[in-house]
């Protein structure tokens, strides 16, 4: 088992944003994490990466308890992430942004630069290497987030809505990139609102609602689960929608 979260609870005051959630991740998985707005996906994510301290529960990476390990050390252990709202280093060039990730595995500037250029090539951003990162639009920033994370040579990559705000064509490109990353041997957790993305990428899906896991299984199983449809659409709409496929209802751009 690569990554395991046991009974994670995260409370802000008396409000439990994540309530007793568990997950296991095997090498080679692509786990999809879905749920309506405010379901607790990002919070759960942040507990896995160490951005937030869990209120209770444990996180294990390759059997090692990392619950109290800092985010920077988790990165060193092979856990990488992107942010839902891109955290671009505005004062740097695109290349320098990626070098920050590359510096995790080497202290030498030249080596970090070589590696960062290779990563930019891989994600198709070489042309922009020397552009100031602040000149990038949303699609560029989302991709840069992935590039930086890849430069840390992760075992597990957690993508928090890496495709939100992209148009249909850009989503297609992003899906191809995620497939390529997966083929290279990296295990993935993806948080996504766009159902098509989950359907075409995830091997397993976990559904959050109000901080709790309400369903898990294959993408097909999950999207035909009445509890899931209800969580997304509400009770009445769910009844009215009976007979149509959930994927249609949950939307996302036409691919």
């Amino acid at each position: 088992m690569l990554l395991e979260a046991r009974d994670i609870t995260k409370a802000f005051g008396s409000f439990k944003a994540v309530d007793d959630a568990s997950v296991t991740l095997e090498q080679g998985d692509i786990l999809g994490l879905i749920g309506p707005n405010g379901a607790g996906k990002s919070t759960f994510f942040n507990c896995l990466t160490g951005d937030l301290k869990t209120t209770s529960g444990r996180v294990l990476l390759e059997g090692r308890d990392i619950t109290d390990v800092t985010p920077e050390l988790r990165a060193g252990l092979g856990l990488a992430r992107t942010f839902q709202v891109p955290q671009t280093f505005e004062g740097m060039t695109v290349l320098e942004n990626v070098m920050i990730g590359a510096f995790l595995r080497t202290a030498h500037r030249k080596e970090a630069e070589t590696k960062a250029r290779a990563v930019l090539e891989r994600v198709g951003m070489s042309r922009l290497a020397d552009a100031p990162a602040r000149s990038l639009g949303t699609p560029g920033r989302k991709r840069l987030e992935i590039a930086r994370a890849l430069a840390t040579e992760p075992k597990v990559l957690l993508l928090d809505e890496a495709m939100a705000g992209l148009n249909a064509h850009e989503v297609k490109l992003a899906i191809d990139l995620v497939r390529e990353i997966h083929r290279s041997g990296i295990t993935l957790v993806i948080v996504e609102h766009i159902m098509e993305v989950i359907m075409s990428l995830a091997s397993r899906v976990m559904v959050f609602h109000q901080g709790k896991e309400i369903a898990r299984g294959s993408p097909r199983e999950v999207t035909s689960n009445p509890a899931v449809i209800e969580a997304y659409l509400g009770k009445r709409a769910a009844k009215a929608a009976a007979g149509r496929t959930p994927a249609e209802l949950m939307g996302g751009p036409d691919l």
Binding site: A75, Q87, T88, G91, A107
Partner: peptide, 26 residues
Amino acid sequence: TNSRMGFYLRAIKDSERAARSLGAPA
């Protein structure tokens, strides 16, 4: 500024959270 430390400092200044997620000991 041309060493790893200098890069890390600039990154931390822009977003400490992102820098840490990439392994920079802020």
